[in-house]
Amino acid sequence: MSNKLPDVEEILEGAVKKHGLAVVPLLQEIQEHFRYLPEEVLRKLSQKTGIPLIEIYHAATFYNSLYLTPRAKHQINICTGTTCHIRGSGKLIEEVFQVLGIGPGETTSDGNFTLETVNCLGCCAVAPAMVVDGKYYGNLTPGDVREILNKIMEKAAVEE
């Protein structure tokens, strides 16, 4: 992945070619590039496709997985569903707070991590579970969480 800022026109062009006028896939594609849905991009999308801006805004605010505010580089989702809760997901959240100093719904001041709780990840067999940047981790202990987060931070430090 290069650090070059993605070209808005190019992304929109590609997305429209791929998904036509289907609003939700378009938004998902945009979010993949920007990690959230920037207002200017949505305005441009509306101009380009002729989809009324309010329809785009409607879809963007309706779905929990579409974000209108900037997200951190790394997204941590900890499952707090029944099984994970019983098997100690609360301890994982505490551990994240110990390591990064953020609670659920918060972002670190350097904009690197966002912690969010979800109601079920659909993998109760490996509870307690966590997803970091789309990768699933199961059967976790607080020690595992610390290890995973430290690894990501090390990797980020090396890249910088």
Binding site: L42, I54, E55, Y57, H58, F62
Partner: peptide
């Protein structure tokens, strides 16, 4: 016009303009 529409959902659902600012439409 299509200047206003529904935003958010469930108990937070409301009628709004895009991004809650005055709509150009």
């Amino acid at each position: 016009g299509k200047a206003i529409g529904f935003a958010h959902r469930g108990s937070n659902r409301k009628v709004a303009t895009p991004f809650d600012v005055k709509s150009e439409e």
